[in-house]
Design a protein around this nucleic acid. Structure first.
Length: 544
RNA sequence: GCGCCCGUAGCUCAACUGGAUAGAGCAUCAGACUUCGGAUCUGAGGGUUGGGGGUUCGACUCCCUCCGGGCGCACCA
């Protein structure tokens, strides 16, 4: 429809010999009574053409010659908007198409042929996932889903550092706990991992190997066992949120293949590397950074930055058209160096999109629940899922923009009532299922031709139809902007629209043709809810 | 001190990326089916969009400045 209108408007501009000044754009008016689609083209072009916006708009309208089976009316409004109101026949056709498309309704191929990688979570296996990781996990997975819905070939990747200091300290933590179990009294340092899970791992090693590991170095069995066990836990947690990665990539591989040394060599060739105070530095100051950064410490060990650069270079080599990096606000400072280095290595960094989500605060009865790793009241992602369920966790993480701090209200999340937005949505779905059961069976796959949609004339019906038909456009725009929260918002509208319709209109009645049409509308609403739930990754219960 | 994010109704947040009268949920108050799920629906009150300037036909949105909060600013990741 937009495309059709755009062609007509551009033609109208041409006929009166005026330059549109910029691409003609349309949007759905926020306000009732402003039609179904509106364009500000006349206002945008008026200035340059030296014309009054309203007069220009009127001239354009006169030259549109629209198909009356698509557009019922066109009017000039406000300061010079042109509002289009669609013909009923157009809606009816669209509704029929919706029902026929079914589970595929909302899918598009705008991303066809594009290979996208979404990298997210990427937490090092040093402990259980936190609530903060959870936000990134759910967000990343949903971005991936939206891109899949728009036809992109998507790969979810989890990258982790298993070569550095962190993992060494982890191994040593397990070693010390192990020795404690053997009666050792060596003090346990503050900078080591304090959690109970470390003791569990130590116990498992004791059970498996007895006392034979007394002289084992931290980086041997201890680190190995810790990585294995913790990773298994992380994957289990992710699995319970229905998140699965197509690929896990780790730092060690980069070393094994000489990629880290090679990237230093390449940067050195560009004159971007120098040595000072026993360390190797990257001239990030020459790349737009504030000051130079160390890439290899005086101990000979690289900083995280270096393998990160090598890792991203590998991403480019793997041929992705778009690489999306998702991480928390605590990592904001890390990516500019990596991107600057990649640019210096002559990669097109516009293909990398960095999405940063702000922190999560858990509140309970108005009080903030602290989430320090040291404290006892530490809440892991796993515990949160146990507490409120996967659907609620996913939905709560998705219902806000990532740029704003997320307040996760535990009390609200736990409530299985009308206060909880997740239940409002799922209730609408369950209710539709119930109505369809009552109405007796499903309208078959050919339901599109099986009813007379023109019988749907009630205001609540029209409103519901219009709301449902926005879905494909919504998916598309949310996918391209990486903004799943707008889908969450939209689905609330769908549910509201449906509930209103339910209260206004009796679905199953003596009037068979009308019943058939309304059943079809229910079917359509359920399709949109289901598909929307699928994108957000929440369940579509038939009963609650 | 510097960088990034945020500040919108009592609370939690939207606002289609610069559009028309700033919208939802919760909370508060007042109402609604003898038939399809009341976990629902209808209505009311509630705002100088943190303050001040600027850009333009038009600003919650962009720019400057100030105030307040969060996160960073390592030879940790």
């Amino acid at each position: 429809m937009k495309q059709y209108l755009r062609e007509r408007v551009v033609a109208a501009f041409r006929d009166i010999g005026i330059d549109p000044a910029s691409p003609v754009s349309f949007e759905t008016p926020r306000q009732e009574g402003h039609g179904d689609l509106t364009t500000n083209a006349a206002m945008v072009a008026a200035r340059k053409a030296g014309k009054n916006p309203r007069e220009l708009a009127a001239a354009l309208v006169a030259g549109l010659h629209l198909d009356p089976s698509l557009v019922a009316s066109t009017e000039v409004a406000g300061p010079g908007f042109i509002n289009f109101t669609f013909a009923a026949t157009y809606y009816l056709e669209q509704l029929r198409a919706l029902i026929l498309a079914g589970a595929a309704y909302g899918r598009s191929d705008i991303g066809k042929g594009k290979k996208v990688q979404v990298e997210f979570v990427s937490a090092n296996p040093t402990g259980p996932l936190t609530v903060g990781h959870g936000r990134g996990a759910v967000y990343g997975d949903t971005v991936a889903k939206m891109l899949e819905w728009t036809g992109h070939a998507v790969e979810r990747e989890y990258y982790f550092n298993n070569a550095g200091r962190q993992m060494r300290v982890l191994g040593d933590s397990v070693r010390l706990r192990y020795l404690e179990l053997l009666g050792g009294t060596e003090p346990f340092p503050d900078d080591h991992y304090q959690g109970e899970y470390i003791k569990d791992i130590a116990r498992h090693l004791l059970e498996a190997a007895g006392e034979s590991l007394r002289e084992e170095p931290a980086e041997g069995r201890f680190k190995e066992q810790a990585e294995t066990e913790i990773f298994a836990d992380i994957r289990k947690t992710l699995k319970s949120l229905d998140i699965e990665f197509q690929s896990f990539y780790n730092e060690n591989w980069l070393y094994e293949r000489g990629m880290v040394d090679d990237v230093v060599r390449c940067l050195r060739e560009k004159g971007l590397v120098y040595e000072q105070d026993g360390a190797v530095w990257l001239k990030t100051s020459a790349l737009g950074g504030e000051k130079d950064k160390v890439i290899i410490k005086s101990t000979g060990e690289p900083t995280y930055r270096l393998p990160d650069i090598a890792y991203h270079r590998e991403k480019f080599r793997r041929g992705f058209d778009l690489m999306i990096d998702i991480f928390g606000a605590d990592h904001v400072a890390t990516y500019p160096d990596v991107l600057a280095a990649l640019k210096a290595l002559e990669f097109d960094t516009r293909r990398v999109t960095v999405l940063i989500h702000q922190f999560v605060t858990i509140t309970q009865g108005g009080e903030v629940v602290k989430m320090s790793t040291r404290k006892a009241n530490f809440i892991t992602l796993d515990e949160l899922i146990d507490e409120v369920g996967a659907d609620v966790v996913r939905y709560f993480f998705l219902m806000r923009t990532i740029s704003s701090h997320l307040n996760f209200d535990l009390g609200l999340a736990k409530q299985q009532s009308d206060e909880n937005p997740v239940y409002y949505l799922q209730y609408a779905h369950a209710r539709i299922c119930s109505i369809l059961r009552y109405a007796g069976g499903e309208p078959g796959p050919d339901a599109g031709g099986d009813f007379d949609v023109s019988l749907l004339r009630n205001e609540a019906e029209i409103d519901l139809i219009k709301t449902l038909l926005v879905f494909p456009e919504m998916v598309e725009s949310c996918a391209l902007a990486f903004e799943p929260h707008r889908i969450a918002d939209y689905l609330q509208n769908v549910a509201t629209s449906f509930h209103k319709f339910y209260h206004e209109c009796r679905v199953v009645s003596e009037d068979i043709p009308l019943t058939r049409a309304r059943v079809a509308l229910c079917h359509a609403a359920r399709t949109v809810l289901r598909n929307g739930f699928a994108i957000l990754g929440i369940g579509a219960p038939e009963e609650m």
